[in-house]
Amino acid sequence: MFSLATLLVVIAMAMTLIRAVRGPTPYDRILAVNVHGTMTVLLIALAGFLTDRPDFLDLSLAYALLNFVGTLAALKFFKHGHLGEEQ
């Protein structure tokens, strides 16, 4: 069951990449990458179960936190052109 779920998640990730490439607006791309990241979190966790290595869950947790910060950083950079240094 884990291998089937992993396969389906990988297919879904490939589908979100289509939207990330097509756009049309930058927000569409950021949204697609955000969903891609959510799926990556679960793919890493599934891979941990598939290979019987529970350490992967730590990576998954770290990726969940990074994905959120990364989305916000990309949005902020796109909006302001910088990440908040002095004018």
Binding site: L8, I11, A12, M15, T16, R19, V35, M39
Partner: peptide, 8 residues
């Protein structure tokens, strides 16, 4: 997940 990607 597939349905969601399809929606996107």
């Amino acid at each position: 997940m597939i349905v969601s990607a399809l929606g996107v």
